[in-house]
Structure formats: structure tokens, C-alpha cells
Amino acid sequence: MSAEASSLPSPQGRGTQGGRAMTPILSVRDLVVTFAIREGVVTAVNGVSFDVHRGEVLGLVGESGSGKSVTGLAILGLVDAPGRIEAGSIRLEGEELIGKPERELRRLRGKRLAMIFQDPMTTLNPVLRIDTQMIEAIRAHENVSEKAARDRARQALLKVGIPSPEERLTAYPHQFSGGMRQRVAIATALLHRPAVLVADEPTTALDVTIQAQILAEVQELAAESGTAMVWITHDLSVIAGLADRIAVMYAGRIVETGAVADVLERPIHPYTAGLIGSVPSRNKRGVPLAQIPGMTPSLAKVPPACPFNPRCPRASVTCRTIMPEPTPYDGARMARCHHPLIEQAPAAA
């Protein structure tokens, strides 16, 4: 496990198979996305790198404006003007996606790459029946008869727990409840057993009971088809039960990555620790929550050097002048901090 800790950010230990590292299914390197707005050019994503392996769930955690959703959109090649992918590389099964012509991207989207969004009402076409939309999604990528496609659509709905799918196929999106709509969106996204599924806060708008049902179904489906997931959320507790690894984003950068248990139990970055302390839970009942002072910076005015320094209890002069570099820690972890909460491992050669 330690042998591969030298490359950053390190893939998880499971990467070795028969002596050589398994190539990640999705590999993002030094991604930079900018938006040209009235106030100038703002950098929404600033040098983000991560790997996701087959069947793995990566939780991408951050608050509003941290760049997590833009990262997700960039993977699908869905960053529109005024946004622009400035630099970096996104490889899907070794194939570079940045710079690919739109026609080829469209062949991948929905087939190898899929995405589910927070609000399924914006994903589904409100004036088309569910069957029309699902059959179209199948036939866009595979040459099958309408009848066969319909059959598959029905099976897909059944799998995500929609009762009487035959009947529901002929319904319109507004006839579904929020949870059911999200199920339809998930069923559609998984129709072609994509290699990578990007999920952008898909359960945030739902009740806990429905959220739990959907998490259960997504977990099962992804395990079955080996789909790797990038699960974008601001809710650490959703990630805690779902993801294998966590990447915490702040002001466009990944500030900490590691296995879920490590990050939640022994956070390295003070921001991660602050996020964990902010979550209300039973052991903190009645006592004030450990809050992070201030608020997330506007991307137009990101503080110099470490962007977290104005809110950080451990900040020093160094933090205001020098940008902390990604530093490896034991257990294939990485953090960017001058004053980490745990001791750094002796530097691996």
C-alpha cells in the first residue's frame, strides 16, 4: 500500500492487483475551470485532481461555491459559457475527454458517463411521457427495437423500486412525487450501465425516508454494474454511510482526501474538522456546535495563500503568505495545510 503513496493524490490501496496498479476508471488531473463574469475571471475549480476506481464511491464534499458541482459538470463536459475548462486532464478509462469534439462526447454521455441532478424536474422533460424519454435514451446509444427498449425501460423502473412500472411508463413527470421522479432519473442514468455516474446532491431535496430508499437502491445498482460514482454533497452524514473515499473541497481546491473512516475520525485539515463539528448529532446535544466563524469566500475574492486562513483557528502568518501544497499522509491520504491536526508521516522518498 505504501509503495504507491508517492503519487498524488494516491489511489486507494485496493489498486494493486497482481503486482501492478489497476488503472482508475476516471482520472482527473489539475483541472482548472474559470468563469468570465462582470467582475472579471473567477476560478471556480483550481487544480483539482482525483481518481475513481471501478465500483468505488468518491464523496465530493463542500459548501456552496466550493466548486464541487462545477467539477461534476466538467467531467461530463457540460461546462457552458461563460465557464471554460482552462487546463487539466479528465481521462475516462484512459481516454482523454477534454478537447474531445461535442459529437464524440454525446456518444459517451448517457452511455459511459451519466449524471443525476438535485432537481429531477429539470432533468426530465415535462411535456414528454416517461416511456418516450427512456426509450429515446436507450435507442440513442443502442440499435434496438422500440419494443425491446420499452421492455428494458420497464425493467429499469422496476429495479429502482417503482411499483406497477408498466402503468407508470405512460405517465408524465409531474404525475410523480419528488422521490419517484428522482428514481426515474436514476433509472434513466443507469440504463446503459455507465462506467461513471456523477450524482450532484440527488437526495438533498428529499425526505429522510425517501433518501434512505434511494441511497439503498443506488448502492445496490452501482455494486451490481460496477459503476464508479462521484457523489457530490454538502452533507457529510450521507457520505459517511455511502462512500469509500472523501475529497473535501474549499474555494475550488481539494483540501483533504482519504478513506471515509480516516477523514471522519481523524481529520487532518482544520476545515474538515470544522465541518464535522458543525453537524448536529446526539453526542453534542444541548452544547453549542463547534462552528466555523465567517462564511465561505466569494470566488471573486478568494483570500490569498491558504483560502481558509481567515476562518481558521490555527492560521499563522505562513498561511496568509504561502499556499500550502498537497502533502501525503499515512493511509493514502492527502491534505493541504501548514498546521495539520495530525502529525505528518515521515516523508516517503
Binding site: 429522510v208 425516508t209 433518501q211 434512505a212 457529510l236 452524514s237 459517511a240 454511510g241 455511502l242 477523514v263
Partner: peptide, 15 residues
Amino acid sequence: EVPRLEPRKKRFSAL
């Protein structure tokens, strides 16, 4: 159903 801050793969068993 309440997701908890526990770093443990959870089987979301649904109501």
C-alpha cells in the same frame, strides 16, 4: 433512516 456521521458502510434499509 437518519444518516449518521459514522464512517461505516451502511446498508440503507428502507421504510
